[in-house]
Design a protein around this nucleic acid. Structure first.
Length: 578
RNA sequence: GCUGGUGUGGCGCAGUGGUAGCGCAAUUGAUUCGUAAUCAAUAGGCCGAGGGUCCGAAUCCCUCCACCAGCUCCA
C-alpha cells in the first residue's frame, strides 16, 4: 500500500473515532485528529475522563460505524457558514479563524458526523477494517503548556488484520527491550525512593559496562590530544550568571544553596568550569587547539514526568569536552570530532541514526543569545563544514543551544521518542562572555572559538541505548560476565576452578556456577542473564582435558580444547562491534 | 509540571468489605546429573505511606509518595 494511502486510511480512522466519541459522549468538543507515523490520534475536550475501559467501548462503537458503511463526503463552505456550522466547536472555530483569507474551507461528512478537515479520506467507512485504539493520554491544545490540556486517544490502522497484528506484536516486543526492565533483570542498575527519584545507582555489573565505556572513550580522546580534567560538581551562581545559563535554565537547576557568603548550585553542565580553566593562563595561537575533556557528573532538576531510567535522570555523567580553537581551525577540529563520532559508532555497531543541523529560531529573542551577526557567522560556518564533510543531514529551526548552533546525532530507542546521542556545537558566544583570549601571530589578543562536543553523550543514556539495541546481550567486549564456567558434577568442580583461574589470568571476566543443579537448569539461567559464553565441564573432560563450549550468541561450538577456546575468547574480547 | 493509569513477598501475578494466596526465585536436606525446569521440606508480606468511613479495609473515601504512557521541556 502506498504510504499516502495508508495515511488517508488512518486519517479516516481518526474521524471514525471522533464520531464514536460524539455518539457516546455528546458534549465532547473536538480539537484535531491527524494521521501520524505509526497510526493516528484525536484530541478531545471532554468532561468525562477517558479510561482504558472507555477505549474498549469506543472501539466497539467504531466497529459499528465501520459496519454501517457510511459514505464519506467532502463539501466546501464560505467562511460565515463554516463558522455557523461549527458554532458549538470552539477549537474548530479557532482553526477556521486562523485560516488565511483566501483559504478554501472544506468539511467531511459521514452519517450524522461532520468535521472541519482538509482531507483526503477514504470513500466509505467500511474501508477502515483493521484498527485498534492504543492508549489515552493528555496533550496540550496547540502543543503549548500554557493552554488547556486535552485528552488524546492514540490508535493505529492498517490495510489488513495481519499487518495490524504484526504491528501490535512489534509493540509488545519493544517493551521487552526496555532498558529499565533489562537493567533490573540483569542487575545493571537500580533506583531507590530513599536515595531519590531520577538518581539511578549502577550495580557491579552495570558499573563494569560503564567502566569499559569510560576507558574506551577517554583512551580515544587521549590519542587525539585531549587533556582530561576533574572539576567539582558545584559552582557559584555567579559562574552561571556569567555564562548566561542562569538566565536560561535556572528553573531546571537544583535550587541554589547558601554557603557562608556564597551561593552555589549543583552544576547542570561543565562549560563554565572548563572556560575558567582556559582563562587561568595566557594562550598563544601556537598552543591552540586546546582540548579539555572530562567525564563529568551533572545534576539537572528535570520535570518529574520526563525521568526515564538511566536514559534521563536528574544525575548523569557527560562525556564532555571543550575545544578552544582559532577561527581557521574550526573546520579541521570539527571534522576530527565528526570522525570520532562515527568511528565510535562503528565500534559499537550503531548504524541507525540521523544527523541534524540545529539552528536558532531568529524570532525567538528570549531563548537565544541576541546577536544576529554572531549567529549568521556560526550557522554558516557550521553548515559549510557539514557540507564539506558530505554529511547527510536535515536542518531544524529552534533546536540550537542558546549560545550556538549544533550538529546533533539522533537515534530512536526501542521504546519512546527519538533522542540525541552525540552532539557537536559551535560557540562564538561563551568565549566572549568569559573574556577568553589568545595572542595571535600579529601580537593582537583575539577571542577563540569553542567547540562543545559529547560523543557518548551521557554515559547513562549511551548505556540505555546499548541495552535496548542488544536486548541486554552485550557484545563480548562489553559483557559484565563474558564466560560462565559450568561444572556438571562435583567431580568436575576442581577442573572448573582451574579453568576459571586460567581465564581470569588472561583478563577474561569469568565466573563459575558450582551449585548442585541440573546442567540444563544452569544453562537456562545464564542464558537469561545473557552471558555470551558458557563452558560446560563434564566428567569425561576431567579425564581428557576437553571441554564443551556453549555460546549464547553462536550456538553450540561443539567439543574443543581449552587452549582453542582461550585463544578464541581472548581474540573475541578484543574485537569490537559484534 | 500537566492528563490518565498502576502500586500485593526478590520477580511475575490472583484476590473488590469478613483469617493474605499462586508460580518462579531463595534456604535446608536428598539427588551427581549433558543444553528451558530432579524430589521433599522450610522460610519470606503491617497489601507504597499517612489519615478517614465501617463491627470489620489489600478492597470504599481523602492526602501524599513512587512508577508507567503521553504532552510540555532537554544547556
Amino acid at each position: 500500500m502506498e504510504n499516502n494511502e495508508l495515511q488517508t486510511l488512518r486519517h479516516s480512522a481518526s474521524h471514525i473515532l471522533a464520531q464514536a466519541v460524539k455518539r457516546l459522549f455528546p458534549g465532547t468538543k473536538l480539537a484535531i485528529g491527524p494521521a501520524i507515523e505509526n497510526g493516528f490520534y484525536y484530541d478531545f475536550d471532554s468532561e468525562t475522563p477517558f479510561t482504558p475501559e472507555t477505549l474498549e467501548k469506543l472501539e466497539e462503537e467504531m466497529k459499528k460505524i465501520v459496519k454501517e458503511n457510511l459514505k464519506i463526503e467532502r463539501f466546501v463552505l464560505p467562511r460565515e457558514q463554516a463558522l455557523e456550522l461549527m458554532k458549538d466547536e470552539p477549537y474548530k472555530t479557532q482553526l477556521i479563524n486562523e485560516l488565511p483569507e483566501d483559504a478554501e474551507i472544506s468539511f467531511y461528512k459521514q452519517g450524522e458526523f461532520t468535521d472541519l478537515c482538509a482531507g483526503p479520506h477514504v470513500a466509505y467507512t467500511k474501508k477502515v477494517k483493521a484498527f485498534k485504539l492504543l492508549n489515552v493520554t493528555g496533550a496540550y491544545w496547540k502543543g503549548d503548556s500554557k493552554n488547556k490540556m486535552l485528552q488524546r486517544i492514540y490508535g493505529t490502522a492498517f490495510e489488513s488484520k495481519e499487518e495490524l497484528e504484526q504491528y501490535v506484536q512489534k509493540l509488545e516486543e519493544a517493551k521487552l527491550r526496555d532498558h529499565r526492565k533489562i537493567g533490573r533483570e540483569l542487575g545493571l542498575f537500580m533506583t531507590d525512593d530513599l536515595v531519590g527519584k531520577g538518581m539511578p545507582m549502577f550495580l557491579p555489573k552495570g558499573y563494569t559496562v560503564w567502566r569499559i565505556l569510560e576507558n574506551y572513550i577517554r583512551d580515544k580522546e587521549i590519542e587525539l590530544g585531549y587533556q582530561h580534567v576533574l572539576t567539582p560538581c558545584v559552582g557559584t551562581v555567579e559562574l552561571y550568571k556569567t555564562s548566561g545559563h542562569w538566565d536560561h535554565y535556572k528553573d531546571n537547576m537544583f535550587p541554589a544553596m547558601q554557603v557562608d557568603e556564597e551561593t552555589y548550585v549543583l552544576r547542570p553542565m561543565n562549560c563554565p568550569h572548563h572556560m575558567r580553566i582556559y582563562a587561568s593562563q595566557p594562550h598563544s595561537y601556537r598552543n591552540l587547539p586546546i582540548r579539555i575533556g572530562e567525564i563529568a557528573h551533572d545534576f539537572r532538576y528535570e520535570a518529574s514526568g520526563v525521568l526515564k531510567g538511566i536514559e534521563r535522570g536528574r544525575h548523569f555523567c557527560q562525556n564532555d569536552a571543550h575545544l578552544f580553537v582559532t577561527p581557521e581551525q574550526i573546520k579541521d577540529e570539527f571534522a576530527r570530532v565528526v570522525d570520532l563520532i562515527f568511528e565510535t559508532y562503528k565500534d559499537f555497531g550503531i548504524t541507525d541514526y540521523r544527523c541534524v543541523l540545529s539552528l536558532r529560531d531568529p524570532a525567538d529573542k528570549e531563548k537565544y543569545h541576541d546577536d544576529d551577526e554572531m549567529w549568521n557567522t556560526a550557522e554558516n560556518a557550521l553548515r559549510d563544514v557539514m557540507n564539506e564533510l558530505k554529511l547527510d543531514y536535515t536542518e531544524e529551526i529552534g533546536e540550537a543551544a542558546f549560545y550556538g548552533p549544533k550538529l546533533d546525532v539522533n537515534v530512536k530507542p526501542a521504546v519512546g521518542a527519538e533522542y540525541t546521542l552525540s552532539t557537536c556545537q559551535l560557540d562564538f558566544c561563551l568565549p566572549q562572555k568569559f573574556h577568553l583570549t589568545y595572542t595571535d601571530k600579529d601580537n593582537v589578543e583575539r577571542t577563540p572559538v569553542v567547540i562543545h562536543r559529547a560523543i557518548l553523550g551521557s554515559l547513562d543514556r549511551f548505556m540505555a541505548y546499548l541495552i535496548e539495541e542488544t536486548m541486554g546481550a552485550f557484545p563480548t567486549w562489553l559483557a559484565p560476565v563474558q564466560v560462565q564456567v559450568l561444572p556438571i558434577t562435583d567431580r568436575a568442580k576442581e577442573y572448573g576452578e582451574s579453568i576459571l583461574a586460567s581465564l581470569k589470568e588472561k583478563g577474561v571476566r569469568a565466573e563459575i556456577d558450582n551449585r548442585n543443579e541440573k546442567i540444563g537448569y544452569k544453562i537456562r539461567e545464564h542464558k537469561l542473564q545473557k552471558v555470551p559464553y558458557m563452558l560446560i565441564i563434564g566428567d569425561k573432560e576431567v579425564a581428557n582435558g576437553d571441554i564443551n563450549v556453549n555460546s549464547y550468541k553462536k550456538g553450540d561450538l561443539g567439543n574443543t580444547t581449552l587452549a582453542q577456546f582461550e585463544e578464541e575468547i581472548v581474540n573475541e574480547i578484543n574485537t569490537r562491534a559484534h
